[in-house]
């Protein structure tokens, strides 16, 4: 069975004198190298120049707050259900009287953990979320020294009240009504 038409039959026939000189081959090779001097560079000098991310880039997660600063997440578990890597776990708790400013719904996530080593950044949690609480941002999950540190809790995930993370560019995931 032949897999491609671009095959070549290899032979070990004796080289001619011109071929033995290697000079024409060297000239052809140099020609290819020199041509690349005049082509546009494909690399950039990274820390000084940064490439723009595509709007659909999926980096580390953020748990959004609503306009009053209350947490949107209600621990419904749909993100954990949708997660193909089973990276998300959560524990729900009931909101007490007087905590209305902290949590938007009657129920909230007391614990919310994402194992970033398991996460494959597919964005299905974002798509499943009925409360528009979880979004994938354009920041990266940074390197750590210990595996335990990759389990992000609410401390890392919930956006700070005074430093909101803009996810407006990401828009609504497709398929939502």
């Amino acid at each position: 069975m032949r897999l491609t038409n671009r095959y070549k039959v290899v032979s070990d026939k004796k080289m001619t004198f011109a071929e033995k000189l290697y000079l024409p081959a060297i000239a052809t090779g140099l020609g290819i190298t020199i041509r690349h001097f005049f082509k546009q560079k494909v690399t950039i000098s990274y820390p000084e120049v940064k490439r723009e991310y595509a709007p659909v880039f999926r980096g580390r997660h953020v748990l959004k707050r609503d306009e009053n600063g209350a947490e949107r997440c209600t621990a419904c578990g749909l993100c954990a259900l949708a997660c193909p890597a089973e990276a998300i776990t959560m524990l729900a708790a009931e909101r007490k009287r007087g905590e209305e400013q902290l949590y938007r719904e009657e129920k909230y996530a007391e614990k919310y953990e994402i194992n970033m080593l398991r996460c494959i950044f597919c964005g299905l949690c974002e798509e499943a979320c009925p409360k528009e609480a979880i979004f994938l941002t354009d920041t990266h999950v940074t390197a750590e020294f210990h595996r335990d540190d990759f389990i992000y809790g609410k401390k890392q995930l919930v956006e700070p009240v005074d430093n909101r993370i803009d996810v407006s560019k990401r828009g609504k995931p497709s398929g939502r009504l």
Binding site: T74, C76, L78, E105, E106, K107, P130, K131
Partner: peptide, 9 residues
Amino acid sequence: LDCPVCDQA
């Protein structure tokens, strides 16, 4: 529409 909160969901 509080299925995310409701235990019956």
